[in-house]
Design a protein around this nucleic acid. Sequence first.
DNA 1: GTCTATACGGTGATAGAC
DNA 2: GTCTATCACCGTATAGAC
Lengths: 219, 219
Amino acid sequence: MDSTKQLPGRKQTGDISSRSRRVQSEQRKRQIIEATITCIDRNGLSQLTLDKVAAESGITKGNLVFHFRNRENLLEQTLQHLNEEYLESWQSAFAAAGDDPLRQLLALIDVRFSPTICSRKKISIWYAFWGETRSRPKYMKVCGESDQAFSNALLQCCHALHQQVGGSLDTKTSALAIEGMIDGLWQDILISPQRHKRADAATAVHRLVGALFPLERAD
Amino acid sequence: MDSTKQLPGRKQTGDISSRSRRVQSEQRKRQIIEATITCIDRNGLSQLTLDKVAAESGITKGNLVFHFRNRENLLEQTLQHLNEEYLESWQSAFAAAGDDPLRQLLALIDVRFSPTICSRKKISIWYAFWGETRSRPKYMKVCGESDQAFSNALLQCCHALHQQVGGSLDTKTSALAIEGMIDGLWQDILISPQRHKRADAATAVHRLVGALFPLERAD
DNA sequence: GTCTATACGGTGATAGAC
DNA sequence: GTCTATCACCGTATAGAC
């Protein structure tokens, strides 16, 4: 644990602006959320307690409640944090891929298997949340919208690509197959004992793209 | 299969034979497990308590503990129950499909979208357990083996089919794509607000099979 | 803003009557 | 085998000191 601990009791007689306080508060929140993720990964969502998060983050329980009203809210914010990270990742990769639909498509695929997004730890957390979506409409909302946004981007690529080079399948099914395979491989990575690695997974999906669309090289 | 086997010379001291007692006990266990599934679906794995299961099953908490030592064991048995149901379903469908690899493959696909296996409720439970696999080696073992068995059957079909008719992709990737798409569609069914129905999902996967293998008709 | 101490309720598990 | 009564513990959340 890196102890970037702040000296307590430091009298800041007006030196610190309200802005930097806010920044610090945000940082504290992130710190807590990171700890939450670690705890869920280690003991499962069903065993997550404020005590564990407090111990892991090095922040007292009372203070933890101060930042996040209660346990439910902490979990909700954790999901939201995870989602934002995911969203920013694929959207920036998508934007960076330029206008070529094939490059866009491959970028979307690759980002789903990038180390930041696709660690076993992170996947495990996603599954834990997905497992509770039915009973938590808020989770469902976040997950559903996130999922749909990615689906749409992928569908858009497939559509453009289809118009460019044709393809053996209708656009919608192609997109469904590609996205499905990605999700399925995530599951494999989570459950199978290291049978698939990230890089292998990505190239396997690339091969599927090559099979669905008539391209000279599918990478 | 279910024999009328009777042990000779058994002391039947009047009312209930030991056999029917055992049967009744098994039935009680099933009853409790069903209730557990319902409760997990309703409130999430993290909120599952013995009280809730007791209320739902109509069996007192004490008696519940009598049957399943503790909460952890109840969950474990629930997962095992779910897994057995799944295993029996696809294996019998596989066996019933005869020798034709294409028919076998389609049977495997269809069974994954059959009402018994693929209800939102059941999927939700699977995800909840998957989300805890990392911290529970026993869950991991059950899920992993189950997953691998299905994968192998599917790979076998693809291999045979590939030898029969050829195909645009190598066997392994084809199998990975098909299974991945199935898993991905499960996720869609769970998360998307009724965007995909079971039947649509199955035919979409059929179309993928048609695209991966040169068949006159893919359904 | 941060931390300590504590109240309160709920949860898993036991003992023992029927 | 089944149930009731009960306990000890732990987790959440609050109140208030620094």
